[in-house]
Design a protein around this nucleic acid. Structure first.
Lengths: 207, 207
DNA sequence: ACAATATATCACCAAATAGTGATAAAATTA
DNA sequence: TAATTTTATCACTATTTGGTGATATATTGT
């Protein structure tokens, strides 16, 4: 009878595809990479595994589509705008790093995908890395390179160290109860120490 | 006839155990974690898999023993000694970080184990993290804390960011051909930019 | 209502994987 | 050299995993 809206009762390809993508996320969250077996994914999705082959061409296709579905850098692009361009990107970099530190700590899926990028050689994962690079390139070329001139590359290296440090510490905090350099990265106190250090180092870099 | 020395011809339990440990290392290096299957390990070792159960109690026992066999922080403890204690640990921290950056880049096994610590919850991996913490604690309490006094924790946070940044960048460089913040982490040029930044940030931290 | 198509399930296969009891072969001891 | 113990292999089972052809059921168009 009606077919316009998306309420299409029982059988719906798009909804089924989404169920598989949700299943991947759920398993990734509960069992990690090694738990991603076609049988388990299908069972978690409540559908037959054959559909994974029909709709995604197999497990790899499904996983690639899951990775692509994550809008990874949205939290960076969003609140960028033009927040005071006349300080050489100092306040922008600082808020960006601090918000990344918080965002990645809370978003466990992003942590898993970051880890994935260190373990496996997937095209979809490379694409994420390239996206981040392209985004960063615009920031560096437009803001910080002109400000730091001959020291531009050193500043890029500083940001590289801080970003990657933030990644590692957030992931470490999730999988490890142990401290890092004596700091409890799960506690508010420990995390604010890291935030202070980030802020301090950026300030010093602009001196 | 003779049994004193270790030349015991063909059958030798200790040598066989070592063959399994070597096989774990080799597979870890070539195929990564996911390649560590008992059948493959046994085949790589050139021995029967039953021995893995007899000697190590199973795959997990073997892997734990492999991890324990890695003297992970030897490169740090070694050349420590008392290299100028009157600068608040500045030169010591700097050389330590720079040598870590180089050592971890070259030592792929260490990279794998570091990654492992972010993925899996193994007792033997926790032990490594604790060892590093205990080692660091001695450094901080004996050298840097007294120097930085009320800012001691901020300095610890700085070191935490730099160490974890070094870890991440070295691992990233190995598995990724892409740049990071526009720097090629496999090239001498890119790596020396990172080294400059490390040196620069430590200097600024002591100002 | 009927045919055509899209969606989903089922039963099954082949390969990979973990694990073990029985046994062979070497080494040690008496 | 004979008996005993240690070291290693082999053959086998059960389970998991990835993958597919045949079939059923729902939806849509006529």
């Amino acid at each position: 009878m009606e077919q316009e809206t998306g309420v299409k009762s029982l059988r719906n390809k798009e909804k089924s595809k989404q169920k598989f993508l949700d299943a991947v996320e759920k398993i990734l969250h509960t069992k990690g990479f090694s738990g991603l077996k076609v049988n388990d994914i299908a069972q978690t999705a409540g559908l037959d595994k054959k559909l994974i082959y029909n709709y995604f061409g197999g497990k790899d296709g499904l996983i690639d589509e899951y990775i692509r579905s994550q809008d990874f850098w949205s939290n960076i692009k969003d609140d960028s705008a033009e927040t005071s361009v006349n300080d050489g990107g100092k306040t922008f970099c600082k808020t960006m790093l601090l918000s990344q530190f918080d965002y990645i700590f809370k978003n466990k899926n992003v942590q898993k995908i970051l880890l994935w990028g260190l373990i496996e050689n997937r095209k979809s994962l490379k694409k994420l890395a390239n996206d981040r690079e392209e985004n960063g390139a615009r920031l560096f070329e437009g803001l910080t390179d002109p400000h730091f001139k001959e020291n531009a590359k050193r500043y890029r290296a500083i940001i590289a160290l801080l970003i990657s440090g933030i990644y590692y510490l957030d992931i470490y905090a999730t999988t490890n109860d142990s401290t890092f350099c004596g700091l409890n990265l799960k506690s508010a106190a420990g995390r604010s120490e890291i935030e202070n250090a980030i802020s301090f180092l950026i300030d010093k870099s602009y001196e």
